[in-house]
Simulated scan of single mutants.
Amino acid sequence: MRKKIVAGNWKMHKNAAQTKELLNELLTQIPAETVAQVIVAPTFINLASAVDNLKHSNIAVAAQNLHQAESGAFTGEISAEMITSVGVKNVILGHSERRAIFNETDAIIASKVNTALKHDLTVIFCFGEELKDRQSGNHFNIVENQLKDGLFHIEAKDWAKVVLAYEPVWAIGTGETASPEQAQEMHQFIRETVRKAFDSDIAEDVTILYGGSVKPDNAKEIFSKPDVDGGLIGGAALNAKDFITIVTSI
């Protein structure tokens, strides 16, 4: 049985007090019988306090990024060792904003994947096509290449520490959402791509999340598709009521 996951990427939102407030809301309001593994990804400066606040719960914490180097003269960057030293066990890599705004290439992301796995971090690996790729019918090629160039160099054993997060860039923060059928079509393609590159066991076991304007009113239908195993949630993760509705939609 594949693990069901709903992860909230908080991006550059929530100061220290707001982080604690939202975490406390989640702690008190997420039902104990929730099926999905819940993960939250606050800002770097709030990771340690988030781990402390959640230490007696089933809610896990993820970093939003890391630097591929172990240490060095990289002003403003955060290493894998720094992340794990405060108890964080997950990291989001390859998000479309990192690719587009900070010019992270597949090669850079592949290097970050290596570093994360070396430090026993679970990687939430993000990828997805832009609107022009979808309109030109090139979306399957883009997704396949991002997977191959950024992730498919890892060994079979490393897949136990990988979660895939398909995020069509045209549906992130735009209010646009891939239809449940479009999401299923791509998730099925992703699973088949993994199967061809590795094997059926890995393909069937890997969790594939959908990200891209998931909201309380569309989550249940999207999550009902056979190859969609949960979501990587952006804006809706910043509101406890909305996020909990999404979490309980699985």
Results as ranks from 00 to 15, higher is better:
residue 106 D to G: 08
residue 114 N to Y: 00
residue 88 V to A: 01
residue 118 K to C: 01
residue 116 A to H: 10
residue 107 A to I: 13
residue 106 D to I: 06
residue 98 R to H: 11
residue 101 I to C: 00
residue 95 H to Y: 02
residue 106 D to S: 15
residue 91 V to E: 03
residue 112 K to D: 09
residue 104 E to W: 12
residue 115 T to F: 02
residue 110 A to Y: 04
residue 99 R to G: 11
residue 113 V to C: 07
residue 93 L to R: 10
residue 112 K to N: 04
residue 107 A to N: 13
residue 101 I to T: 04
residue 94 G to C: 13
residue 91 V to Y: 01
residue 117 L to M: 09
residue 107 A to H: 13
residue 95 H to W: 03
residue 119 H to S: 12
residue 106 D to V: 07
residue 96 S to H: 03
residue 88 V to C: 09
residue 116 A to P: 11
residue 91 V to Q: 08
residue 108 I to G: 00
residue 97 E to V: 06
residue 103 N to H: 15
residue 119 H to W: 10
residue 113 V to K: 05
residue 104 E to D: 14
residue 88 V to D: 09
residue 95 H to V: 02
residue 98 R to G: 02
residue 98 R to Q: 14
residue 114 N to P: 10
residue 89 K to M: 00
residue 90 N to Y: 15
residue 95 H to I: 00
residue 91 V to N: 01
residue 104 E to H: 13
residue 90 N to L: 05
residue 106 D to Y: 09
residue 109 I to V: 15
residue 100 A to L: 12
residue 105 T to F: 08
residue 113 V to P: 05
residue 103 N to K: 15
residue 105 T to W: 10
residue 103 N to D: 13
residue 114 N to W: 03
residue 105 T to C: 07
residue 110 A to D: 11
residue 91 V to L: 02
residue 91 V to M: 03
residue 99 R to K: 15
residue 108 I to K: 01
residue 99 R to L: 13
residue 110 A to M: 03
residue 98 R to V: 07
residue 101 I to H: 06
residue 97 E to N: 07
residue 116 A to M: 05
residue 101 I to E: 10
residue 100 A to P: 00
residue 94 G to F: 07
residue 106 D to P: 10
residue 106 D to R: 12
residue 100 A to K: 14
residue 99 R to N: 09
residue 89 K to N: 14
residue 89 K to R: 12
residue 108 I to T: 08
residue 110 A to G: 13
residue 101 I to N: 07
residue 94 G to T: 08
residue 115 T to L: 05
residue 100 A to D: 11
residue 100 A to S: 14
residue 114 N to R: 12
residue 111 S to D: 14
residue 111 S to L: 04
residue 114 N to D: 15
residue 91 V to P: 02
residue 104 E to S: 09
residue 109 I to C: 14
residue 99 R to Q: 13
residue 117 L to K: 06
residue 115 T to E: 11
residue 92 I to E: 06
residue 91 V to G: 01
residue 88 V to H: 06
residue 110 A to C: 09
residue 117 L to E: 08
residue 88 V to K: 04
residue 97 E to Q: 12
residue 116 A to E: 08
residue 116 A to K: 09
residue 102 F to C: 06
residue 100 A to G: 00
residue 96 S to T: 03
residue 90 N to E: 08
residue 94 G to E: 08
residue 88 V to F: 02
residue 112 K to T: 05
residue 103 N to T: 13
residue 115 T to H: 01
residue 118 K to D: 06
residue 119 H to T: 05
residue 100 A to V: 11
residue 111 S to W: 07
residue 96 S to I: 04
residue 115 T to A: 14
residue 116 A to V: 06
residue 108 I to S: 03
residue 95 H to A: 00
residue 93 L to W: 06
residue 96 S to A: 12
residue 92 I to H: 06
residue 88 V to N: 03
residue 118 K to V: 03
residue 109 I to P: 08
residue 107 A to Q: 15
residue 115 T to S: 14
residue 98 R to K: 14
residue 89 K to H: 10
residue 114 N to S: 15
residue 104 E to C: 11
residue 114 N to F: 00
residue 102 F to Y: 15
residue 90 N to V: 04
residue 113 V to R: 02
residue 101 I to P: 00
residue 102 F to N: 08
residue 112 K to I: 05
residue 103 N to R: 15
residue 115 T to I: 00
residue 109 I to D: 10
residue 119 H to N: 15
residue 90 N to I: 02
residue 117 L to F: 05
residue 88 V to Q: 03
residue 117 L to R: 07
residue 114 N to I: 02
residue 109 I to R: 13
residue 117 L to N: 04
residue 112 K to Y: 07
residue 108 I to C: 04
residue 101 I to Q: 00
residue 91 V to S: 05
residue 110 A to R: 12
